[in-house]
Design a protein around this nucleic acid. Structure first.
Ligand SMILES: [Mn+2]
Ligand SMILES: [Mn+2]
Ligand SMILES: [Zn+2]
Ligand SMILES: [Zn+2]
Lengths: 140, 140
DNA sequence: ACTTAAATAAGAATTATTCTCTTTTAAGAG
DNA sequence: CTCTTAAAAGAGAATAATTCTTATTTAAGT
């Protein structure tokens, strides 16, 4: 994934957010870490370069990034939030045996769904987004 | 939804689980409460008839019911677990403004998806289940 | 360099959930 | 019906993730 420092900086500037070392580090962590990290993964990652970062700051920043649509939360069925730096429309493959979550891009599928729900309206409900969660086993 | 006491009892017996007042009450609560209740909703509901139920028991029972595939957890992006008594294949409509989650049944859609993924295999991944989360606004 | 609103640090507080240990009970056997 | 026992429940402490509060620091514009 893009770990270009200027691209990261731009995301903050575009949202009129102050560019702080903490925000930069947290965003860089999210883009570098795979498997949709939890807050603690991010804390561990940034501690190397930023040993004095406060836990509360990480949660605060994550909240700000979500509000500004720079990152997303990933839905899970357990009570630890996971974060996702990919904002392009995509879906997720959940391993039923581990906590692995892989990204799944499929424009054809998106088209089929868009088409389907344009025809078949759901009564009293206006769709804003569609997320598919595929649960299963990864080979190897 | 079915709030028949014998049907509830049967679900426990079929899974070779002891039939206890607590388990009966918790299952009855899940079937009676709408909107995919959290543990605390269930606790509030059953307190009327079972004022001395322990919080830990509720969590324990919910875990047992999930293990035995009598209920399910619902995926959300926040750290409070929600429970679902409907085990028939269905999807969920998430309100983007409130915590409302409605069930969505659509056999036609299920067929389309089943068909789609039978043709288009995902490399190194065996699908066990497909869950769609539609996020949007409810009218009224 | 100065100013100031915004961000961070530190640690306490809160909340959901789990764990440990003791007591109670469901359900099968006799 | 009683007896037995493994399983379940109760009580409350412990844990873990997240949020809140307040003082201090800092980014960025003037
Ligand atoms: Mn860690
Ligand atoms: Mn309550
Ligand atoms: Zn993703
Ligand atoms: Zn449901």
């Amino acid at each position: 994934m893009e770990i270009n420092i200027d691209i990261i900086k731009n995301k903050l500037v575009e949202s009129r957010l102050k560019v702080t070392p903490q925000r930069m580090a947290i965003l860089e962590a999210i883009y570098s870490l795979d498997n949709h990290p939890i807050a603690d993964d991010i804390i561990d990652y940034i501690k190397i370069k930023h040993p004095n970062i406060a836990t509360g700051t990480v949660y605060k920043v994550l909240g700000v990034l979500i509000e500004n649509k720079i990152i997303n939360k990933v839905n899970t069925e357990r009570g630890v939030s996971r974060y996702d730096g990919i904002m392009d429309s995509h879906h997720h493959l959940y391993c039923s045996k581990s906590d692995l979550i892989k990204d799944y891009f499929d424009e054809e599928l998106d088209k089929i769904l868009k088409n389907y729900f344009e025809k078949k309206k759901i009564p009293d409900f206006n769709i804003e987004s569609i997320a598919i969660q595929l649960k299963g086993r990864f080979n190897e």
